[in-house]
Structure formats: C-alpha cells, structure tokens
Design a protein around this nucleic acid. Structure first.
Lengths: 335, 335
DNA sequence: TTGTACGCGTTATCAC
DNA sequence: GTGATAACGCGTACAA
C-alpha cells in the first residue's frame, strides 16, 4: 500500500535513506538512531508492505529464471500432489535453478477465477491438473496468453501429459473376465473428470464384450469414506454382491476393505478389489491392494519438461505425451 | 533474458508495438501481419521470457496483496501438506484475496539455501514447516529480513504455532500404563526434529515414572515401509515383543499393522498400536488405528493469521500459539 | 505505430 | 558523519 516514498515524506528523509533503514543497513550507512526510529515508526503507521515485484526487478539474478506454477484443486485429491512434487524432486529438477515452482490451489470448476492465467503477472507457464469438464471447456474456448500443459487430460489445443484411461478400464475389465467373474462393478468418484469417464467407458465396454452377465456402476465420494459407504449400501441392498469391484481411487478401495472386514466379506475369495493410482499406502493395507499404477512421478517430470520447452519456444504448443498404466497385482485379487 | 527492447530493435519497431503484439493485441491495434510476424520471430530467436516482476509492477491490483509462502520439505512428509492446505481452504482464507499463497519446497537441513529468505524478493512472509534441528539453529543465529512463523517448533526468536509434544508423549505413556502394560516401545522416524524429540522425551520419562519394566526405542523410516520393518526385525529378534507401541507417524503404524497380520500378531490383543497425526486413512485401516490427533487444519489457519498480523505490524514478532493434541481411540488399542 | 511516463525499491554518486 | 539525488530494471498504456 504505502511506498517508501510516502514513508520518506512522512519521516522527512529521502527514499534512499528509508530503503537502507528498512533493510537493516541503517547502521552500516551510519544513519542516526533518531532518524532510524522515525522511519521505522512511519513505516509502521503507514502499514508499509514492500513490493516484491519491484525488489525482484532490481535483482538481476532472479530475472532470468522462469516461474512455473502448478494449478491443483484443493479437494479430496489434494493429497495426490505430494507424489507429483516428489517426482519432480527426485529428478532434482529444482536444484539446477532452472525454474521456480509455485503451487497455486484452485477450486474445482472455477479455473476461470484464476486471473493470472490471463494477466500473466504471476508465472511464465502453468501445469493444470484435475481440470473438471467445465474447466476444460473453459480452457478450450479461451485464449490464454501463457504456456500451458494439461496433466491427465486430452486437448486439441494444449500440450498434454496423459495416460490412456480408456485402455486402463478395458484392461481391468478383461482381467476380471479372465478370472471368470460374472458379476462385477466399477466404483466412480463423484467428481466430474475426463479421466474417470474414460476409465468407466473402457471398463463397461470391455465388460459387455466379454459376455459378463452383470455389471453395475456405483458412486461415492472420492475418499475412504466414499468406498466404505459403497460397500455398506451394497450389503444393505442385497445378498448378491458382485464378485469383483474396480475402484477409481485408492482411498475408496481402502475404505471398502475395512467395510468388507466388518461384514465378513473375504477379500479376494468373496470379492476381488482393484484400486487406482498405486498410492504408497496401498502396499500396506490388509490385504495389500491390487491397483493400477499411475506413473505420477514420471508424468510430473514430463509436465515440467514439456512446459519448459514451451516456454523456451522449443516445441509446438500442442505436443502430447502418453504414458502407460500398469496393473500391480497384490493380494486383494486372486493370483 | 532478452527484453522487449531488444526485440524491438531486432525487429525494427518500437517497444510499444512489441508489447501489443506479444500480448495478442496486435490485430486490435491494427498492426500489419508482416510486422507481427517479424516481431514474433524475433522474440522466438532471442528466447524472450517476459518478466513477471515488471508486469506485476504495472498491475495496480496486484500490488496491495501480500505474498506469503509455505516452506515445506519434500521428503516423506510431503503428504502432510495437503491437510495443511485444506485447513486454509476450509476457512476460505483464499477467497477474500487477502494474500497470495506460494508453496516452496526445500530440502531437509538446507533451509539456508533458500535465498529468498534473505533477499525478500519472493514473498512478504513465510511459514516454515518441518525445520530440522540444523535448520532451526540456522534460523536462530541468522537475521532474516522477512516475517516468519514456525510451524510445530519452538523458538525464542520467532512466532510459533505449536502443540505440546512433550505432553503428548506423556499422555500416551500414561495411557499405556493405565492398561497395565509392562513392556512398551516408541517408534521414532529417522528424521531429526524437535517435535519428535520432545514426544520421545515425554514418553520415556512417563514410562519410567509409571514403573513399567521395559521400554525400547525403535527407529525406522518415516513411511509405511519403516513401520513394517520395525515389526519384522522385532519378530526376528525375539519372541518377547512389547505389548504396546507408539508410532510417531501414522504411515509407520499402517505399515506395522500389515506386518502384524502377516506374523499372526493380534491387534490389540497381543499388541496395542497407537499412531500419530490422525491422517485420514487411519480411520480405515484394519483394525482402525488409535492415533494422536494433531490439529493440523486449525494450526494452518493460525499460521496464516499470525503471519498476516506480523506482516501488518499488528503483533510482536515472538507471539506463540499452542494447540492441543487429543488421543483418538479406535480399535488398535483395547477399549 | 511510436515515444515516453510510470510503478517502486536499490544502490552508486554526490553534497553538506 | 548524514543524507539527498537519480539512474536503473522492464513491461504497460496513453498521448501523439
């Protein structure tokens, strides 16, 4: 709000003097204690807040490195960001000082409220994660003036780093079919997303093609509680449970495991469970969870690299990278 | 690197023109296509990177709001940051546009490498989390020119938001004692930290005072794997296991639960397990984990509020806030 | 399309 | 010894 010029005026000194004092160089510059007091007091009264932009502008070291941001939703999926960051960390992409990383939370469905995507006043490029369908539509029809990489989404317009979610759905369904299941289900988080839709689509299609008799779509919150509730209501509704379930999030599967224990449903004998993402905890549930490994760490590195290339004009704006998921077989499915 | 002025020179136009074109306003300003091409080409060749500081400096809207940063370590504890963020989110502290939040990863023990703590060119204030003992020492002996709040650490010099970790240790030990345990243990993550030390100290002291016969300190990685290994080696070493264990991280406890299942150790009959933090997953392990609830969300809000007060000169630099932990009893301990 | 004032803190140069 | 002055960094936007 207040600038050092206002402080200077109020304290009756020059801006240079104010700057020195505010930076603790008052003594070194041999400015009298009385003056220092006066200036500090004035700063306090005016509620001085240094402008970091102005400071940076002066510091030549910090001018050259690009600032990149990760736009991530702060809902239940917030916990997934740690793997993303660790992926970047492991490659020690930070250390080289090639970029500065900024994580900016946004609300699901409200990416249009992130003004800096238009103003370009905060970062040189952005990685957008967890975009909902509304968010994606918005991005498709808007012209951003900032290089962008989409994580886990498809787009004609932007650079993307993705996996074939449809194929994942197919593979899990075929895995179930190969085990001879006749009645299966897919448990879908109540968060609209392209990736979830595609997994579901692939799964259902493959289920149909494989001649399984019965398949159902169940919905629940993305979290442990969501998976727990799904089992609860399944048990309440009928005695004829499906014999295999594909949960589109690991936390849901974790919640489901507890519910099964409580209802005496044996895993995998009565019910096979497969999760999605391969979160660290899934190797330690009881029984350990079979899950679809999402190469988050590798994708994170790819996102950063792609974005850097974009920023450096070294690549077209619509390049795409596709990674592979992989079924990690543990004990929640029959061997 | 290159500035808009260099581009102007190379393309033989003025800086104003370059600015318009680079911001997609070329058509609106009726600048010939040929010129636009030339400018864009020049920008590409020079590897132009817009200076966000300069842009911000011009945008009066963004001048008034302080930028605050969270310094968080990118080790196994990275996953804890999501609760911290969600705490801030829930209070919708973001929405009011009172501040901009920036998350900056740093490496355990290397906070001195975070230069912007000195230059003040990136944020108006910082919340420092997970500081190791080395980091703390460094902070104590260095004069930073930026307002700081320490999360989960004590300090004479800085504002802190903390819990009484020593008391937590005591309470868990007394809880064990009240159950009549004679042989107990505490499992400590291999990450040096004041909080961990204090919990351990309180625990061991109370164990001694309560007349328990045997207590041991076990060490392992902070993660699930660490807890799993601790049980493994305990089993290998002897048949006389302790009958109660306090894990200083929830993931460790989760790993331990699986190891117990695999070795036929019944929880809580043979071994009571208590974790620490009350991560979301702990309510869904099998059996659900008794754990110490750390009010991360509330503390996060307190950190932000304290920091804002500091930045606004409304509070002394050394104010401290203390929160309470609480034992959440679930089925991994006897009722 | 161009020229240029402007935003704000830093620091080197100059003056009393 | 104390402190003032002004150039500077870089993109933006308005007057010309």
């Amino acid at each position: 709000m207040a600038t050092i010029r206002e402080i200077a005026e109020k304290a009756g000194v020059s801006v240079g003097t104010v700057s020195f004092i505010l930076n603790g160089k008052g003594d070194k510059m041999r400015i009298s204690v009385a003056t220092q007091e006066r200036v500090l007091e004035a700063a306090r009264e005016l509620g001085y807040l240094p402008s970091i932009s102005a400071r940076r502008l002066r510091n030549s070291d910090e001018k050259k490195i690009p600032v990149i941001t990760i736009l991530w939703t702060l809902d239940a999926r917030a916990s997934l960001i740690s793997r993303f960051l660790q992926g970047i960390q492991e490659k020690s992409l930070f250390k080289d000082g090639m970029f500065e990383l900024l994580i900016q939370p946004y609300e699901n469905g409200k990416i249009h409220e992130v003004e800096s995507l238009h103003t370009g006043t905060r970062f040189n490029g952005a990685i957008i994660a967890n975009a909902s369908k509304e968010d994606l539509e918005y991005l498709e029809r808007t012209n951003l003036n900032v290089p962008i990489v989409l994580y886990q989404r498809y787009s004609e317009k932007y650079c993307t780093v993705n996996v074939d979610s449809r194929l994942t759905g197919i593979e899990v369904a075929e895995y179930f079919a190969s085990k001879g299941h006749k009645s299966v289900g897919i448990v879908v988080p109540e968060i609209s997303s392209q990736a979830v839709d595609l997994r579901q689509e692939g799964f259902l299609e493959a289920v149909k093609n494989s001649g399984m008799i019965n398949s159902q779509i169940l919905r629940g919150d993305f979290s442990e509680e969501g998976g727990y509730s799904v089992i609860q209501s399944l048990v309440k509704r009928s005695k004829d449970l499906p014999t295999a379930l594909f949960f589109l999030s690991d936390p849901m599967a974790v919640g489901a495991i507890l519910a099964c224990h409580e209802h005496g449903i044996r895993i995998p004998e009565d019910l096979e469970i497969i999760g999605h993402d391969n979160d660290e905890q899934t190797a330690y549930t009881y029984p350990p969870l079979t899950t679809v490994h999402l190469p988050v760490e590798e994708m994170a590195v790819a996102c950063v690299n792609q974005l850097m290339e974009l920023i450096n004009h070294k690549v077209e704006t619509t390049g795409s990278l596709e990674f592979k998921t992989e079924l990690v077989k543990r004990k929640s499915s029959k061997s």
